[in-house]
Every structure is written in C-alpha cells, then in structure tokens.
Write a protein that binds this DNA or RNA. Structure first.
Lengths: 330, 330
DNA sequence: ACATTGAGGTCAGAAAGTGACCGCTAGACC
DNA sequence: GGTCTAGCGGTCACTTTCTGACCTCAATGT
C-alpha cells in the first residue's frame, strides 16, 4: 500500500472531500515528505486535474474544475445517493438524459459492494413515487441488467409478454437501449427468430445475462432509435393544455413552481399552459392551484375534471349534480 | 503521460466502461507488454478493487464488486446525469438520503468543467417538476454553494428573508446542513450577532463564499439536527390518510404503484393508506385511482375533496350542488 | 520587515517498474 | 483425451522513477 499510484489516488480522494488542505497536513497523512507531496500534486496536474495552491499563511491546496472530470471518490452513503438519484433520472424524471443515467447507473452498480446494493434495495419502496400517471414504470434492476448486457456484449435471456398477452421466452443479442417518450425499448437480435426486434422494457421480466459474449452484428437501420420508431404503431401524442386561472400569476407561480408555463393576463388572471401525455397532471395542477379557472383547451380535460369531481362529491356524501348542467355548456 | 499511476487510472477507467477486456487488447491500449498489464491488474487488486479474470478462449478481465467502491470514471454525459439525479434526490424525492446527495453533489460540481455546468443549467427548466405541493423548493445552486462552504469551513455571506419579511444581510460561519421534513436548514454561527442560528434555505438567497476560512467552533447542542429541531416552532405533522376504495386491490396497485399501501378487503374493495404532509397527494391518488371510495380518515380530506370538486365543477359549467348534502353526512 | 507556505532545482541512494524469457494451469472446442 | 488459447507467476538484468535532504526563490498576509 506504500506505492506511488495508490498514494496519488488517496491524494485525489483527500482533495475531493475537503477543499483546502495545508501542504504539511497532506504530507503527514500520506506519510511522505512535503517535497514528495509537491511532486504528487505535480503529477495530478500533469494528469489534467488542476490543483490550485495558495501561498502564504493559511495557504493550501484545493482541487479546481478542470477540462476533464477526475475519477470520483465517493463514500458509501454518497454512492447510495448517487444510485438512487440516477435511478430516478433514468425513470424519465428529466427528459433527455435517460440513456446517460442508465449508463452511469450500470457503471456504479457493477462495482458496488453487495451491502450497498442491499441498502438501495431497502430504499426502493421509498423511491417508487414516480407516479407517471398510469404509465408502467420499468424496474430499475431490469434496466441495469439489460444496460450491462448491452454494454458488455453479453447474450441475454428473458421472458416477454407480448401485446396480446402471451408470454414467450427469449434469447437475444442485446444491441442498444432506447428511451422514447417515457418508455424504454431494447433493440436486440432475436436468436430464435433470426431477426432484429425491439422489446418494451416494461413487458420484459427476469432478464438473465448468460455469461456468453458475442460479436456485435450490424443493425439494418440508421440507428437504434430509428429502428424502434419504425416499429411502433402508436406514438403517445403529447397533449397541450391551456387554462385561464383566476388568480394573480405570482400567486400561481408560488404554488406550482416552474412546473407549468404561467403568463399573466391581468392582475387577477393568468394563462396556464402545460404539455403532458396524460390528463392527471393538469388536473392535479388545477387542484393545487386553489383558484377558479376556465378550461380553454382540450375538451377532454373538462371531461376528466367532471369525472374526478363527481367521484369526489359522491365520496363526501354530496349528491352529484345531473349531467344536464354540463350539456348546457357551450 | 507514460508513468505508472496514470496508466493504473486509465486501466481502471477502461475496466469500468466495458466489462470484458482481453488482456492483449488492454496491453495494447496502455502501450505496455502483457506482463506489465498483469502487474497493473495485480496492483489494482492490491488496492482493493477486485479484477476477475477468465482463462481460456475468449478470456479476459472484468472489474467486479469489491469491498470498497473504486474511483468512478465517468464521461461528460454521465456526469450531467449524475448531477441532475443527485439534485432531484437532494430536493427530497427520496427520504433519508438528502444529506448524502448534497455532499456528493457538491463533490461533483466542484470538479466539474464549466461547460458541463452550463449544460446542467440548461436542463434546469426540465428538472423542476419537483411538485412538492405547496412546499417551497430550494434552488440547487444555493444548496451546493452552502454545502461546499460547510465542508470547506469557509465563511459565507447571504441575504436572508425572515419570517416577518424583512431582508437582512448575513455573515456566518456555516456549520452543517440539515434536512428535516422536506426542508433544508443551515446551522451556522452568525458573526454579527455572535450566536448560533439556523436558517431556512428557501429563505436564503445569493450565498457567496468568502474565500475566508475559519476554525470550526463547537456547537452548543447535541448535534445540528437537534439544534434545528429545538428552534422550530411549527413542526409539520404528518397526516395519515385512510380510504376504502371500491376497486380490486390489484387494479389499484397497477394504477398507483407502490406509492401507497394497499390492502385487500374483498374482491371489490381495498384499503388505501398513505402518510403525507399535505392533502394534495392523497387527493391526487384518489383521482388517479379512478374508482369510487369512502374516506375513513381524516375529515380534512373530505373537505379538501369537496373544495376541489366544487371548483372543478364550476369550471365545467355544471352548477355546484349546495352544501346541504354535505351537512347530511354523518 | 518578517513569518509562513508553496515552487522548484539538484543530488545520491533506494526502490520501483519494465520487458523478455520461462514453464504452469484453467477453460473451450474438436 | 488432445490441443489451443489466454491468464498466472517466477526470475533476471536493465532502466527509470521515486524519495528525502538540502538549498534558494516567490508570493502572501500581519
């Protein structure tokens, strides 16, 4: 443990956990002379990780932002936080970074000690609140297993529930994971059917990596996303919602945050605009808004609101009004 | 760039990005002989990062899960995903890991090249959907700045809006960040007032780290969390909600996921239980549930439901029923 | 002006790292 | 069972780097 590379790593980790370090203390911790420490610092700088130094009384070293990201040295808790955060991101909480999230997640999970995996598993119950309306969520374990198989060029077995409902056992050469509109797809070469297929990850269960590697084939399509897009019949059309809310824009922003686009009309009214794939979120937003409003668009939203309202009133014991009033609506 | 430690790091990064590597290819990439590669692998193993090897045809090396987490080598996109995931986690998406998330976030952000920070900033708009009902969210930038100042023992200036509304300028020695019930607090020694204070992070703006370090003082409390708890007058009492839903448990689970506790009563009814801090989430859940239900507990939920329902109906043009029906409720 | 702390040169001895060679062993495939 | 492949690990000689000690210089803050 006394060799140079390990010490360099340790130095990197020390610099990451605590910004300022007096040279003497670092030298002490690494059990080398100050001269050697300076040389170690130089080495890090040569590797592209800029270490800033301050001279004079209370001087010291600190790791600065550089051109490249240094290897991150994280402790157990941070690793768990990392994995959970990535998992949320991969579930589609933020558009556009799903693929990178899964890659990073696979990377972290692969090298993570079992005890940490157990901790993550224990926290799974809490992490579930990814209420994407009625959208089926993909199990994070499935996601990482499949992602690893793709990356490692390792054949994969799983059972797949087709749209019609029949369950089949598959053996494939995984090619790429694609995230399209809140859904994950696996593009893979099906070894039994001798052809390329795309699989919806929420219909896929018990993926098992066979320890069996393969040479990647060439996909007969521009890229994996294009292949998936070509195979999908129903694309979830995003709904655009527009409502006039009878509340000051400022109040509404305070309640909803940056969750919807809010434009002022006058001192007491504003426009609320959202784009989603289901109606539950806009309804929720209008509930949270806590003010009266008029739906501009789309009519389905009105229907949804009426449906919720009647059910809610039924539960309170208030008799729901007849539908005649609604029919009178222009 | 030809020295040993840099090569060891590169080897680690190669092993992290791609699970199986034939020894010859690794040796080739690192521009050393196979013998030296073996020695490098040995070195990694000595450092506690277990590298598994497979012999025979198609053999190779792979990084396995060990006792300690190796330094993570991530690329740009993964770093962005990481930061965004951590940011979501820090905002309180998952209970119990907020502090670790912030620590990790501070760590990543500190060494992150500016171009990546800009990319994260660009994605900020998308990451906002942290709809914590009416709970004010903390700006992630504020969070990391303050976290760094705590970690680095660096004095901090910021402006603070007190409960009453007046804005004051503060100069403090930050001690610790505490996350309590969806809120972030900074425990710090106020240099102007010569005493310890706790600050709500959502009331704090424009934090600026002075490049001015200090020796940490001792906090006159058991720990920072206890100090904050002692200073809070209103603790948000968690509400426990119980509803009987007229739908099979299985159906409900499919719609709500693991978001609430669902226990079967009989084939057509089930118990739905949730614990939250505000009523908006249970109402939303009941809306998404899409079935009739009866509120068991608490009465406020019924009030909330009636309030939403009447507003919703008003918007559809359906006249809201009078409140007499509700008064007839037992 | 002075103490403090980092920067960096030089030197000599110690400690590694390196490639070339060797025979060995565990799998995979015929 | 034989054979091929690819990792394992020992030894040796040579080279390179590393290290601590010593030195002077350069910022920085009091």
């Amino acid at each position: 443990m006394a060799n140079t590379s390990s010490r360099t790593l340790r130095l990197l980790s020390l610099l990451q956990t605590h910004r300022y370090w007096p040279g003497a203390e670092l030298a002490d911790r690494l059990e080398v002379s100050v001269r050697t420490l300076r040389r170690d610092v130089d080495r890090l700088r040569e590797l592209g990780y800029p270490v800033e130094a301050h001279r004079g009384v209370d001087g010291g070293y600190q790791l600065a932002a550089g051109a490249a990201l240094p290897p991150l040295v994280v402790d157990d808790e941070e690793a768990v936080a990392l994995a959970i955060g990535l998992r949320v991101a991969a579930q589609g909480a933020v558009a556009g970074i799903e693929e990178a999230s899964v890659r990073a997640l696979a990377k972290v999970v692969q090298v993570m000690p079992p005890r940490l995996r157990r901790r993550i598993e224990a926290l799974r119950a809490a992490t579930q609140p990814t209420v994407w309306g009625a959208g089926p969520t993909v199990d994070a374990g499935t996601l990482t297993t499949v992602a690893q198989a793709c990356r490692d060029e390792e054949r994969l077995r799983f059972s797949y529930t087709a749209r019609a409902g029949e369950v089949t056992e598959r053996h494939v050469e995984p090619h790429r994971l694609v995230s399209l509109g809140r859904r994950w797809y696996l593009v893979a070469y099906d070894l039994a059917r001798h052809d390329w297929r795309s699989f919806r990850l929420d219909r896929l269960s018990e993926p098992r990596g066979t320890r069996d590697r393969f040479r990647p084939r060439e996909l007969p399509a521009e890229d994996a996303a294009a292949f998936v897009r070509a195979g999908i019949d129903t694309i979830v059309a995003p709904l655009s919602v527009e409502v006039i809310v009878h509340a000051p824009a400022e109040t509404l922003r305070g309640r909803l945050g940056a969750w919807a686009t809010i434009d002022e009309i006058d001192a007491t009214r504003c426009h609320l605009r959202m784009t989603t794939e289901n109606l539950e979120w806009p309804i929720f937003a209008l509930g949270v808004a806590g003010a009266d409003f008029e739906v501009v668009h789309p009519p389905e939203l009105t229907d949804g609101l009426r449906e919720w309202a009647t059910r809610f009133l039924r539960s309170t014991g208030t008799p729901a009004p007849t539908d005649r009033g609604a029919a009178a609506r222009p």
